[in-house]
Amino acid sequence: MDTEAVRTFVRAAELGQLRHAADELGVTQQAVSKRIAALERVLDVRLFTRTARGVELTLDGQAFLPHARNLVTGVDRAVTAIRPGSRALRIDVLGLRSAQAVVLHDYWRSHPETDLDVVTLRVDDPHVAVAAVRAGDVDASFRSVTDPATLPHEVRMIHAFGSPLELLVGPRHPLASARTLTPAQLRRHRIWVPGIAPRSEWADFYDQLATAFDLRIDAAGPNFGNEVLLDILADSADVATLVGSRDRYLWPANHDLRRIPVVSPTLVYPLSLLFPRTDPHPRLQAVIDHFASLAPLPEAVWLPSWAAAPRRSDAGAEQT
């Protein structure tokens, strides 16, 4: 069924004049007559009768009109859902409990009028996220390409914000009573980070972190998700993990887990944002501006070699 013919029928029915419908749709009156005639042939009914004052709906036309309106509305919504600039701002995050999702949620709470679509591509290789940005599948992605030379010219990468790391331990762990910890105090302790995928940005991050501070970072074993990890930490006297200070984790009260900031230097996971270099989504800049409102990083920080140098204003530096 020709949806433009249906749209033409709806406007003619609402206006009662083929000429008025033609003027509103930007076509000739003859084109309106042809569209309605074609629709009547498809439906095998008469939709209008002509009168001295214009057109009136037949009984079949009256029955068809509410469904035709729904059809036109559905088509318009479908087009809006995929049209850049009019559809929701679609941003990829690593997980819905990640720091990226938390920051986006904070932004949305301050700007509830923003039509925001937060998605997770569930890919480990950041170059797959780059391809999704190039193809227009997402408007932006919180991913870092650790070798900027491999980033295509059509995609821009900027520094978004830094996520300070905390040690997460159960009550029986020997470091559980500490209020803060230095990287040197983490040595010899098993830091379990399941799910470190080859070629991922976080694999590079943890490799450099382990080398820089002689840490025992263990990625062995399957990743059964955060809930299982938290259960293991609650019962363990020797296993810890690292989490971002803005990452959202929930656990039963009897787990008594402790989040302990790592300082001197603060270990920072740098978060970047990928988006098209030309014609980005018009509502993306407001989100980027929001990064500047985040709390600045401490003076003494550690970052991997591929990240931008730390600054007191922790937002908006382009990485090229």
Rank of each mutant, 00 (worst) to 15 (best):
W251F: 08
G221Q: 12
D279G: 10
F224M: 14
S293L: 09
W251Y: 06
G225I: 10
P296Y: 03
L271R: 04
P265T: 09
I288R: 01
D235V: 10
E318Q: 14
G221T: 10
E299Q: 12
L233D: 00
D214R: 05
E201D: 15
Q285M: 11
W202I: 13
R259P: 04
A309Y: 13
N223E: 11
L230A: 05
D314H: 08
A315N: 11
R258F: 00
A307S: 04
P282M: 15
D218G: 09
N223Y: 14
S236R: 00
R216G: 11
P282F: 15
V239W: 08
F224S: 14
P310L: 04
V193R: 03
W306H: 03
P296M: 06
Q319F: 12
W306M: 04
Y249L: 07
A203G: 09
E318A: 13
Q208P: 03
S305T: 13
N226K: 12
F291N: 02
T241M: 08
H255Y: 11
L297K: 02
A307Q: 00
Y206K: 00
L284P: 00
A309P: 07
A317N: 12
A220M: 08
Q319I: 13
P265L: 09
D238G: 07
W306E: 02
S200P: 00
D279T: 15
A210Q: 06
R190L: 14
W302N: 06
I217M: 06
L230E: 05
V263M: 13
F213D: 03
L257A: 04
R216H: 15
I196A: 05
P222I: 07
H189T: 02
P298N: 13
G225W: 05
R259V: 09
V287A: 04
S293N: 06
L257N: 02
Q285A: 15
P296G: 04
L303H: 07
A240T: 01
P270G: 03
A220E: 13
P252T: 04
P261W: 06
R258M: 01
D235T: 14
F275H: 02
Q319D: 11
G221P: 06
G316P: 00
T241Y: 04
D235E: 14
G225R: 09
V262K: 03
F275W: 04
P276M: 11
G225Q: 08
L294P: 01
G244K: 01
L242E: 07
S200I: 01
H281T: 10
A308I: 10
A210M: 08
